[in-house]
Amino acid sequence: MTVNSIYKEEKKSAFQKVFEVIITMASRPSGFIGLSILVFHIILAFISPYIAPYDFKAINPTLMLQAPSAEYWFGTDDLGRDVFTRTILGGRTALTITFFGSLIALLWGGLLGIFCGLVGGKIDDIVMRIVDAFLSIPWILAMLLIVSLLGTSTEVLIPALGFFYGKGIVRVARAATHDVIAKDFIVSARARGHSNFSIIWNEIIPNVRDAILVEGAMRWSWMLLGFSSLSFLGFGVSPPTPDWGLMISNARGLMSFAYWAVIAPIVGLSSLIIGINLTADAFAKALGIDRSTKAPV
């Protein structure tokens, strides 16, 4: 076998690599369950406006708190709105906001972490102190303050969530960078006279990408949890937009006689969070990254 043919075997298209990772993930039972739940929720988020049987904001006083029936599968809520319609629509806002939020978190957290890991010294010290300080403020206090002062529009929520969930990624990316930085190929790239930017782009990112992506996937499920908590507390999505956190908080007061209105969004939100969690776990295992000893920071 010539050197050339070995090289060709190693070279796979990005699509093939992604496909292989997904196959590995789905080959474990937990990964398969997680992936199917996640795919189901994503498909549902796309098609739900077209399959929803009723108008999600149609208030009907004559239909208040109806028990589940053939007509209203999950019953109706305290304003006579169809719970089934609101439940299948309830994940769209949360999914969209947290997806873009995680992307922002990945980008700034990952790049800053890599930069700090590479540069080291004073700049690294200062940035890490600031990151530590932000980590020690409970996220919920900071998020609530921002949201209550700037409002709950998407333009506020996405950057704010992205910022507060990215600071943990800074640490992960920095640690991963420290692992590669001492390797010979970085030393030789420096010897060849490559700039910091070129080293980050060509040498470090391909090597720390997996660790950061896994962290980002995990952050996505935490961000979803955080976002729903905000909605639940009344600081997230504003009514009448259907959202699971908000639906649970509204229906909670009446759950002693209308439990269906609170059970449906609970099942929706829990299944999505568990789905993302299992997928992220399977993703980590498929890429050979052990997260089991990490604390939720």
């Binding site: 949890l225 649970i248 908080s249 909670r252 759950m255 609170v262 609970i266 939100l269 829990s270 568990i274």
Partner: peptide
């Protein structure tokens, strides 16, 4: 444990109230 740690606090708390208290 996976269920207990992934489900949001407000959901497990709401379910506890619904089942045990109500």
């Amino acid at each position: 444990t996976i269920f207990a740690m992934t489900i949001p606090e407000f959901i497990s708390a709401t379910l506890l109230i619904l089942i045990i208290a109500i």
